[in-house]
Amino acid sequence: MPARAVLGYLLAVLPLIATPGASFTLLVQRVARHGRRQALPVVLGTATGLYVHAALAALGLSALVMRSGTAFAALRLGGAAYLVGLGLWSWYRAGGRPAAAPRRLPWAVRSTYAQALLGNVLNPKAASIFLTLLPQFVDPHRALAPQVLVLATAQVALVGAWLLAWTAVVARAAEAFAAGRAKALLHRVSAAVLVALGLRTAVG
């Protein structure tokens, strides 16, 4: 695949990547409260979500969902409900309240990786990238799947680099605000952002 096509695609998605979303909010929340190591599951979950969207786009399933008003609405509302629920749970946990039985909580709530994965998979705007931007950089005379894989991998690398760069910034900021109350406040702010992102997704 021509390098200029890959570079052009990365330049096209860069403004979207740089716009704070669920993955960025989760990164800030987890790294500020639990340290740099929590960045890895956020990055891996986000990367997996992108590959899921890429695979669905290559199979043509994403196009079917986007064209079906009912299916698209279900995806949008499902993603919105997940983000709102995750935000409310994070707000509750910010107070330092111990969960009654943390191991009994659903994996999608307990796992940072799952939160990043579902936050991405259930995001219709992430799916739309592979249906609107990506086709503009694909050669119709060549096999589709390998080209989608190359572009998706390039996007994953860019997203990973972006999130890891912010990890260093957030970790240093967390050290400056080492007090428990300051971290709890940051946790609540990020929880409120998740709720806001969910509400924005719900209204389209």
Score class of each variant (00 low, 15 high):
residue 89 W to R: 15
residue 90 S to N: 15
residue 90 S to Y: 09
residue 91 W to R: 14
residue 91 W to A: 15
residue 91 W to G: 15
residue 91 W to S: 13
residue 92 Y to N: 14
residue 92 Y to L: 15
residue 92 Y to S: 14
residue 93 R to G: 06
residue 93 R to L: 14
residue 93 R to E: 13
residue 94 A to F: 11
residue 94 A to R: 09
residue 94 A to K: 06
residue 94 A to M: 12
residue 95 G to N: 06
residue 95 G to E: 08
residue 95 G to C: 08
residue 95 G to Y: 04
residue 95 G to D: 13
residue 97 R to G: 12
residue 98 P to L: 14
residue 99 A to R: 13
residue 99 A to K: 05
residue 99 A to Q: 09
residue 101 A to Q: 12
residue 101 A to W: 03
residue 103 R to T: 11
residue 104 R to N: 05
residue 104 R to P: 06
residue 104 R to L: 13
residue 105 L to S: 08
residue 105 L to V: 02
residue 106 P to E: 11
residue 106 P to L: 05
residue 106 P to N: 11
residue 106 P to H: 10
residue 107 W to G: 08
residue 108 A to D: 00
residue 108 A to R: 08
residue 109 V to S: 05
residue 109 V to C: 03
residue 111 S to Y: 00
residue 111 S to R: 03
residue 113 Y to F: 15
residue 113 Y to Q: 04
residue 113 Y to S: 08
residue 114 A to Q: 01
residue 114 A to M: 10
residue 115 Q to M: 07
residue 115 Q to L: 11
residue 117 L to G: 02
residue 117 L to I: 06
residue 118 L to D: 05
residue 118 L to Q: 08
residue 118 L to H: 05
residue 118 L to N: 01
residue 118 L to M: 14
residue 119 G to E: 00
residue 120 N to H: 09
residue 121 V to M: 04
residue 121 V to G: 01
residue 121 V to T: 00
residue 121 V to N: 03
residue 123 N to L: 07
residue 123 N to I: 10
residue 123 N to Y: 07
residue 124 P to V: 09
residue 124 P to F: 09
residue 125 K to E: 04
residue 125 K to Y: 11
residue 128 S to C: 12
residue 129 I to Y: 03
residue 130 F to R: 06
residue 130 F to D: 00
residue 130 F to V: 04
residue 130 F to N: 07
residue 131 L to K: 03
residue 131 L to F: 10
residue 132 T to I: 15
residue 132 T to N: 13
residue 132 T to D: 13
residue 132 T to L: 15
residue 133 L to D: 03
residue 133 L to A: 09
residue 133 L to S: 08
residue 134 L to A: 14
residue 134 L to M: 15
residue 134 L to Q: 11
residue 135 P to N: 02
residue 135 P to L: 11
residue 136 Q to A: 14
residue 137 F to W: 12
residue 137 F to N: 03
residue 137 F to E: 01
residue 142 R to H: 13
residue 142 R to W: 09
residue 142 R to G: 10
residue 143 A to Y: 04
residue 143 A to P: 07
residue 143 A to V: 04
residue 144 L to W: 05
residue 144 L to H: 01
residue 145 A to F: 10
residue 145 A to G: 01
residue 146 P to I: 01
residue 148 V to A: 06
residue 149 L to H: 02
residue 149 L to P: 03
residue 149 L to Q: 06
residue 150 V to P: 01
residue 151 L to C: 05
residue 151 L to P: 12
residue 151 L to T: 04
residue 151 L to I: 06
residue 152 A to S: 10
residue 152 A to G: 03
residue 152 A to W: 03
residue 152 A to Q: 03
residue 153 T to G: 11
residue 153 T to D: 07
residue 154 A to Q: 00
residue 154 A to H: 04
residue 155 Q to K: 06
residue 155 Q to C: 05
residue 156 V to P: 10
residue 157 A to T: 09
residue 157 A to L: 15
residue 158 L to W: 02
residue 158 L to D: 06
residue 158 L to Y: 04
residue 158 L to A: 10
residue 158 L to P: 08
residue 158 L to M: 04
residue 159 V to K: 10
residue 161 A to L: 14
residue 161 A to K: 01
residue 161 A to E: 03
residue 161 A to M: 04
residue 161 A to N: 04
residue 161 A to S: 10
residue 162 W to S: 08
residue 162 W to F: 15
residue 163 L to H: 03
residue 163 L to F: 01
